[in-house]
Nucleic acid binder design. Structure first.
Lengths: 211, 211
DNA sequence: CTAACGTTTGTCCAATCGGTCAAAATTTGC
DNA sequence: GCAAATTTTGACCGATTGGACAAACGTTAG
């Protein structure tokens, strides 16, 4: 369990402004990284002066920290839902779908996370080696059970999870590249449905031609 | 073809020092991004004073630009090698292997590229929509030919290429997370071989249990 | 040896950085 | 309506940023 941070009493304005700042900071941090972002940028994006922003968050790091705490919760939710009970192939398929939907609907969150990891995860390393590892190990065990039961092919469950993360988050983190390569036609709104179809087939059957 | 930049005459010292700077800059840029990196950091990593560094590269951007130009060449080399002539399944398998080897041997280059894309590719957008798109379209056509010939399963060649990029580069860009989740045992030097085995199976057969 | 050229350094600069502070403006509780 | 509490702002601070520059130092060719 994490340290129980008793949420301080907050006025209506404080709640609203803090949300405004976090929204603006998500935009700025996710595209420039922590070091590459400035308080002025965030303040301007939030439509307020720098000292005013600093009235709600004392330090730049506090904003980032709050953002990361919230992120990890929603970020791991899809994996948490992976259920031992359901049909294995269906469970995996809908996990992939949920992750892809997150890449589509919350690309900034994905990029914020990617930025943090790219920079060596200096601020969330303990969470990776702790909470995240625990959850992944747990789900890897579930997947292993499915393999032993002959429900899915035997392979490495950890790398399977990595490959799902990588392929889905790619559409958020590398979105600019994806759209540039697909061009205006194929790179439009339909690209996520194309991706969903492709990934489903890849994880189901691989590339071997149907014999 | 790109603009022919006639390489200026350079002394022995200039060549050596420029390489030294680029090596140091790769280290710094790849972990901090462009905006998050400072000339001082690079100068210190290169073991020289800031004014001395600026004698070899007039502006911070010049270093990054030189780095990115070199990067793209080596970065696309594996895809260029994808050969129409060879056996399709073998060709794809060795493409995946080459990409994974690059993630293992040149993780800083991978992260440098990822950083640039994450930030919206402000400095290499033209290359993505130009040279990169052309190459990918060309190879997608090759893959489509294999599909028509029944050599591999019918699917979207562009998203297939994306999935190979995503799964392999993940082991460079998200290395910190991979090692944190795998732990000290499974996360050691063997992780790339495990990944290679897993990816081969995934792209070959998918997850459906062998009937 | 020496003059020309290439290299390195210390010093300096304006702009920007994260952050402080007191005063002014606004909102809130009664 | 008014006093207390909260919110906002302008001015300011020291540190760091990217970069300029001239002087000092090395190297090299004749």
């Amino acid at each position: 369990m994490t340290i129980s941070t008793q949420a301080p009493r907050r006025t209506r304005i404080q709640q609203e402004k803090r949300e405004l700042i976090l929204e603006a900071a998500l935009e700025v941090f996710s595209t420039n990284g922590f070091r590459g972002s400035t308080i002025d940028q965030i303040a301007e994006a939030a439509g307020m002066s720098k000292p005013n922003l600093l009235y709600y968050f004392r330090r730049k790091e506090d904003i980032h920290e709050t953002l990361m705490e919230r992120l990890l919760e929603t970020w791991l939710a899809p994996l948490r839902e992976l259920d031992d009970i359901g049909d294995p192939m269906t469970e995996l398929r809908s996990y992939i779908r949920r992750k892809l939907e997150m890449a589509r609907d919350f690309p900034r969150e994905s990029r914020l996370f990617a930025n943090e990891i790219l920079q060596g995860a200096p601020r969330i390393m303990p969470l990776l080696a702790g909470e995240l590892k625990t959850l992944v190990d747990e789900k890897a065990a579930v997947i292993k059970g499915w393999m032993r039961a002959g429900k899915i092919a035997r392979t490495d469950p950890w790398h399977l999870i990595f490959s799902i993360w990588a392929t889905t988050q790619h559409y958020a983190d590398f979105d600019v590249q994806v759209r540039a390569v697909l061009g205006p036609n194929r790179g439009g709104d339909g690209r996520f449905e194309d991706a969903a179809r492709f990934l489903e087939q890849l994880f189901l059957d691989g590339l071997k031609p149907k014999g």
